[in-house]
């Protein structure tokens, strides 16, 4: 009797849970679909106008050619046995990801001024899906940038790791880094709201993030206080991961698992904060 009651109860709870489960599953599918829709727009825009990408090849080329060549001659930087240009290539890839992403917020302000953001916000789309879609869009732009850096690196004779798993790892780090930095940028845009103030802050942020990282020299060369900052800087973990995955003889200083955890954790936190703040840009 008791048993049967319990079975009935259990059956009852299952029949309760099923529609609920189906409902949440449908919500998740819609969430992912909308996120991908926003990102899909970026691909379409790139197809309509690819010239923007070409002009972005200049900066990494300058860094690798000028800075890289000079410092290869000087041999002043301990790279753990790597040729300097090899050591530097992942750093420049990370730099490209950072630079392309950290100014991404300006496009949010631009879309706000056009009224595009308002229409997205009035649609029944979860705010986090909009923000995540934007993060992925930045990732797509950064990925195009990564192809350019790869081409340059090969031309300069950097010993690359062509293992498909390693390549997939590079793509993951590029998308994660771009998602992280572009969402930080989106948050800044939502807080300052105007183009002028945004550009000011963007410029103030970029160089310190770049120089207080292991992108073009190891952290061990830095004074103590800067080492602390470099260890708090997510860019250091982006570089570390890329250095391990991109180069034939690449090694990670902190371990790929830690790099990945830190970037993923930071990206999750900023996407959630961004989802909260995004509606403010329209007010």
């Amino acid at each position: 009797m008791k048993l049967r009651e319990r079975d009935a109860l259990r059956a009852g709870s299952v029949s309760w849970a099923l529609p609920y489960l189906a409902h949440s599953l449908a919500a998740i599918v819609r969430f992912v679909d909308k996120t991908l829709t926003i990102a899909n727009l970026e691909v379409r825009k790139l197809r309509h106008d690819p010239t923007d990408l070409a002009s972005r090849a200049v900066q990494p080329a300058l860094w690798l050619l000028v800075f890289g060549q000079v410092f290869s001659q000087v041999r002043a930087i301990p790279t753990g046995g790597l040729p300097y240009i090899d050591f530097m290539a992942p750093g420049i890839l990370a730099q490209s990801v950072l630079f392309i992403s950290i100014f991404y917020g300006i496009s949010i302000i631009w879309e706000r001024d056009l009224g595009i953001v308002q229409k997205l916000l009035v649609s029944p789309t979860p705010r986090t899906a909009l923000v995540l879609g934007k993060a992925l869009s930045a990732g797509i732009r950064a990925f195009a940038q990564a192809l350019i850096v790869y081409a340059l690196a090969v031309l300069l004779g950097v010993q690359m790791n062509w293992n498909p798993l390693a390549l997939a790892g590079v793509v993951t780090f590029v998308l994660l880094g771009a998602g992280l930095f572009s969402t930080v940028s989106l948050i800044i845009a939502c807080l300052v709201k105007t183009r002028e103030r945004f550009m000011g802050i963007g410029q103030v942020l970029t160089m310190p993030l770049f120089f207080a990282s292991n992108a073009i020299y190891p952290i061990s060369l830095m004074p103590g206080w800067l080492q602390v900052i470099a260890h708090l800087n997510p860019l250091s973990y982006e570089v570390d991961g890329l250095r391990a995955l991109m180069l034939a003889g690449g090694t990670s200083a902190y371990g790929l698992a830690l790099d990945l955890t830190i970037l993923l954790g930071a990206a999750t936190v900023v996407v959630i904060i961004g989802g909260r703040l995004y509606p403010r840009v329209a007010t």
């Binding site: 727009l41 379409r44 056009l114 009224g115 595009i116 308002q118 649609s123 029944p124």
Partner: peptide, 17 residues
């Protein structure tokens, strides 16, 4: 949001699409 449509005062179509 499900039952309304909205055309903002600003021009809001995306020119790059």
């Amino acid at each position: 949001r499900r039952v309304i449509g909205y055309v903002p005062q600003l021009l809001s179509a995306d020119g790059d699409l």
